[in-house]
Design a protein around this nucleic acid. Structure first.
Lengths: 160, 160
DNA sequence: CACGATTAAGTTGTGCGCAATTAAATAGCG
DNA sequence: CGCTATTTAATTGCGCACAACTTAATCGTG
């Protein structure tokens, strides 16, 4: 009952089996990254998503609305609100309602948040080393991933 | 204070910026996959990780210990135990302590679980279509991801 | 100006992933 | 045999991601 299935032709079976391995490999790689980042960031007291949010703020240190950060990271308020509250509780950011638009909450770095940047500088190099990829491989991988994400987004409702 | 940093030389800055985009792209792709799978699996009432567990059981329909499933999926009991309980609550699997080794819990498909396989058959094709990747691209991507995961695992403690 | 539609955050609930701990059974060694 | 060490699941706690909903402010159109 398990081996000689009458369904997909050999070629299909090959392709189909391959594919879910891609999503599987993708998840495996993402989790391996998570483990490496967890270790690289633990002295900073940041998780990887928190680190991403800090990167956004370090890049553009002016106060930014939650919405802008969410667009940059592709995260909605359901994820960002508690995450930013944790960063606020850690003293790294301040949140306050915008004066011009009372719906908006702007986030800005505190002095401690700005100071943390210096300690975060050596992190990327550690990650690059851990990946063990050449520049060319990294470029190929990134290009494939971006094409893949675009295709998946387009295939599926596009706007979510 | 933000722009003319005295730290990394231009080449480094290039590489460093690139890299965290790779982890970012990786996460983005994984989440896009999640969205596509969520839609493809919602008629089956399965999440993607639950679908993976069912794939393991469909491949090898004999009763398997939780540990074996965990090794296959690289998940520990902290993740698998509640997941398998949900599959049990859905009537798709049965869990019982092994007779030979009372520490072990073996998981087997129920009739409903076996029957669900038929409804899951069209799923992989939908996913393949959604990726929009050629076979060659898929192979390249998978090879890169596996190398990357291996490197990251090795760089970071190896055993976790 | 008024009123319905839209927009921005936040909240709640579910499930995953991982660390750390616990409980019970087995293995192994003196 | 007895006792420790190891193995296997389960549990607890935290944080992320997402869906669905709520609240409050703004926009747009009549």
């Amino acid at each position: 009952m398990t081996t000689p299935l009458p369904f997909p032709l050999p070629d299909d079976a090959e392709l189909l089996r391959l594919d879910h391995q891609i999503c599987f490999s993708l998840n495996a790689a993402a989790r391996a990254f998570g483990s490496v980042y967890r270790d690289a960031l633990k002295d900073l007291g940041l998780t990887y998503p928190q680190y991403l949010a800090m990167l956004v703020l370090w890049e553009e240190p002016d106060a930014q609305p939650v919405k802008a950060i969410g667009e940059r990271l592709r995260l909605d308020s359901g994820t960002l609100s508690p995450l930013l509250k944790r960063l606020e509780a850690a003293g790294l950011v301040a949140r306050e309602r915008s004066a011009e638009d009372e719906r908006s909450v702007v986030v800005r770095l505190t002095e401690a948040g700005e100071a943390l940047r210096e300690h975060a500088l050596p992190v990327p190099r550690r990650i690059v080393t851990a990946t063990g990829l050449s520049l060319e491989e990294a470029l190929t991988l990134r290009a494939l991933l971006e094409r893949l994400t675009g295709n998946l987004d387009a295939a599926q409702g596009g706007g979510r």
